[in-house]
Write a protein that binds this DNA or RNA. Structure first.
Lengths: 308, 308
DNA sequence: AGAGGTTACGGGCAGCGTAAGGATC
DNA sequence: GATCCTTACGCTGCCCGTAACCTCT
């Protein structure tokens, strides 16, 4: 009845080798050397007495039994991660979380999120980077990020999407800009430059579609990857901002900006937390829970916005 | 991203410590020493930063978190065992299986079972012991057996029961015994000694109940733990055997014994495979599958008996 | 005093990393 | 020759087992 127990570490190494399709990439991912990976895979195959990975030139492929094992490996690692997550008291959890966020999040509840993360997981270091959503999507897929709060959904089966809330995009302008107080239509708006996010972002695409349909004078569409820059330009009367009203709440309160009452509404923008659907992303999942709470709190404190 | 991986072996040690309620018993079960168990449990608690096991005097108890972990541990070990079972090609499986069987099984399909096990799992050594069912039940619970084919069901949540087939108990006698050919009733039967299994076995109990209800002359109930001895006595006319007809098929064919046409039928006896419901009993489960097949084959080759 | 758990210590070996050796494009 | 996997080899450090100690009945 003596149990020959193939180590979890071996299973983990197999999992990542199979998933990443390369011994060396698996080694890199697991902070070890390529020979170590090679060894353990060989040992695993020897233990089972069968071939798991066909070493094709250039690319690896899994044998039928290899595929079978991969299924078990994922379930096993996920269950293990769940167990560790359930047992580890948050305060003692350590590690690092490479987090990417949209600037919109920075201007709404990021501070609250960082605060609560710091209090809940004092041992976790957050590596923050702010970027536009498409860039973060790529970074997630490249595994340069563990978690991102971005405009979604991100339609890739490899990523988990968790909705965090909706922002309504509004037309924002300086009160000094000569625009009627009552409902204005598209022609009135486009007399001024429209300032929004860079190409390939969702607000930009929506805006392009909207303005392409109408028969309008030559369009001036200013873009900036920096939300602050957009806000600054709007305040200074450079043009009309097409951004979530929520991020300029204080400027509106101070009278530096106002929300225009336009006949044409811009589509809402949904923010999601996205992270790789891998067995070792327990911390990302936990952080997403915190983000959900923080986002809900923020919505409660900023009535009239976010999820209905 | 660096994963602190609590070893499966640690989980296994925790599982058995919790299950057996003692460090030393766990050590014994896992073929290691008690300090090794102590160390790893301590290390596990240190890793999680919490107490899992309350070292009460005389008896251990689990903390709430310990209970939680036990649940995960069982799922994890079971999944792992399943994985190993699925990956290991049977021919390379090794180990030993402590098997207990009722003598009835010996006289029916045990040989076929041993044959097929030997062919399917050439690396597995079977330690066979033949005994009466109650004794085997206790042996299973004492973990002196891994698997038993016995009269069931065994009503203990700790054991898995898998029905293997039903045998109808019959009245068997030598043709030389002066008994009418037509239907006979209880009084006719009890003029002779009744020979059956020892006290505490199911056939014996049934027989006692049956005969206690009737108003009969002094009863001579001979018992033997050896089925062969019962058969021998029946053949020699010592008495009437109350045993499954299936086990004396050849004697009946040779005319040494005949099945009496009695008005009173004895209850069927159900055989089951029973083994402990623990994560490391994959081999027992596999052997039970073999037994199911063999029993089904045997029933097919001996029409009129077994499962309808 | 004895059963059962903890602590202390030395030694074996698994598994890691470095480095050199194929194979394939 | 560049890339990727395998093989060789020495070494570290983990973990095990022995043994002595502690504690409670």
């Amino acid at each position: 009845m003596a149990d020959p127990i193939p180590d979890l570490k071996t299973i983990q190494i197999f999992y990542w080798t199979a998933t990443l399709g390369s011994f060396s990439r698996a080694a890199e991912h697991l902070n070890t050397t390529q020979p170590a990976v090679s060894h353990r895979i060989a040992a695993l195959e020897r233990a089972f007495g069968l071939t798991l990975i066909n070493r094709g030139t250039r690319h690896l492929s899994l044998s039928p039994k290899g595929h079978e094992l991969l299924g078990y490996a994922e379930r096993l690692l996920r269950l293990h991660g769940e167990m560790v997550g359930a047992m580890t008291v948050p305060a003692t959890q350590s590690g690092s979380l490479r987090l990417g966020v949209s600037e919109t999040i920075v201007h709404t509840w990021l501070t609250a999120f960082i605060d609560r993360m710091g209090r809940t997981y004092p041992g976790v270091a957050i590596d923050l980077s702010v970027d536009i959503s498409p860039a973060m999507r790529d970074a997630l897929l490249r595994r340069d990020l563990d978690l991102a709060f971005l405009v979604g959904p991100v339609t890739t089966p490899r990523l988990v999407n968790v909705p965090l809330g909706r922002f309504s995009t509004a037309w924002i302008a300086s009160p000094r800009l000569p625009i009627a107080a009552g409902p204005v239509d598209l022609a009135d708006l486009t007399r001024h430059p429209i300032i929004t996010f860079p190409p390939n972002t969702m607000p930009h695409t929506h805006l392009r579609d909207l303005l392409a349909q109408a028969d309008l004078p030559p369009l001036r569409l200013y873009t900036s990857a920096s939300l602050s820059a957009i806000i600054r330009m709007a305040i200074e009367g450079t043009g009309i901002g097409a951004i979530p009203a929520e991020v300029v709440r204080s400027e509106i309160d101070r009278g530096q900006l106002r929300v225009l009452d336009a006949r044409v509404r811009l589509p809402d923008v949904t923010f999601v937390a996205a992270y790789e659907n891998a067995p070792d992303q327990g911390l990302s999942a936990a952080a997403t829970q915190i983000a959900l709470e923080v986002a809900a709190d923020w919505i409660a404190m900023n009535p009239g916005h976010g999820n209905p």
